[in-house]
């Protein structure tokens, strides 16, 4: 999975248009980034990268790009 497909997966979880995220968005400003989206995000990362993220680490992220950094080791370069 590369960065763009990772962003596309997040777009699907929070139900926004494809390719609408550029990474600079502040998570708490995204309307549908809520506890349900968080579970969807953890499931997506577990499925695609075989990594179980701690909710605490996700909660520490401020922007979408912080999520990208969180899984950087598992993204295609």
């Amino acid at each position: 999975m590369n960065t763009q497909t990772f962003l596309n997966e997040i777009e699907e979880i929070i139900e926004v248009d494809k390719n609408s995220l550029n990474g600079t968005e502040v998570l708490k400003d995204l309307e549908d980034w809520d506890s349900l989206a968080l579970m969807g995000f953890i499931a997506m990362v577990d499925t695609n990268m075989d990594v179980t993220l701690e909710a605490e680490k996700i909660n520490a992220c401020v922007t979408v790009n912080d999520l990208v950094v969180l899984v950087a080791d598992y993204l295609d370069k």
């Binding site: 506890s35 349900l36 968080l38 953890i42 499931a43 577990d46 179980t52 909710a55």
Partner: peptide, 9 residues
């Protein structure tokens, strides 16, 4: 919910 989910999987 997210912590419970992580624990569960």
């Amino acid at each position: 919910g997210s912590d419970i989910f992580t624990f569960t999987i």
